[in-house]
Each structure stands twice: as C-alpha cells, then as structure tokens.
C-alpha cells in the first residue's frame, strides 16, 4: 500500500507538484493499480534472468567523426527564456 506521504515523496522525486488534497486521490488510484501489479508475486522467477533488451545485440558503436552541430539560434528556437546565447532558468537553490 502506498501512503499519502509516499505519494508526496514520489511526487517530489518525479518533480510533479502534488498538493495535499490530491495526494489522497492519487494514493487511492495508484493503490488499485499496485494491487493488480502485486499478482506478479505469484510467478516463480527464481533463476530467471531479466530481459533488458529483447534482441541479443551487443557492441553498437559510432566512429569518432565530427558531425555538424546546430546553429545557436536553432538550439534556442523553442524557448523565450534565453540570454546571450544561453538558456535562462530560475535560480537553483
């Protein structure tokens, strides 16, 4: 069972602001899903390796050859928040 407090903590980890009122609703909805997910406990997975990649491929590389970068105005074209060629955001702390 995920608690209200855990919902708020996960909200912070995921940088999704959740106010106290919402955390109740989230907890309820998430719990019904987590409850369903709990059925995986029934499956015996001892000695079963995880499948991270469905295709068995290794060592895919690129040569160390320079490709053209984007012009600065294109890099910054999707934001209004910029200054002297930099992105601009609120302070960090």
């Amino acid at each position: 069972m995920i608690t209200k407090e855990e919902v708020e903590h996960v909200g912070w980890l995921a940088r999704v602001e959740i106010d106290e009122k919402e955390s109740d609703v989230y907890a309820e909805k998430l719990n019904s899903v987590l409850d369903y997910f709990g059925q995986l406990d029934e499956v015996d997975t001892k000695d079963v390796p995880p499948t991270y990649h469905v295709m068995d491929v290794v060592n895919v590389f690129r040569e160390d050859v320079v490709k053209e970068s984007m012009p600065q105005d294109i890099v910054l074209s999707n934001t209004e928040h910029k200054k002297e060629g930099n992105f601009k955001s609120p302070r960090i702390m």
Partner: peptide, 14 residues
C-alpha cells in the same frame, strides 16, 4: 549563476 549560488537571480545554461 547570476550572482552567487545562494542568492542568484537566475541561471544561465550552456
């Protein structure tokens, strides 16, 4: 940081 890290007015990102 525009100013010091603690009292910055904003952050420029490159």
């Amino acid at each position: 940081h525009i100013g010091t890290i603690e009292k910055s007015k904003g952050t420029l990102i490159n």
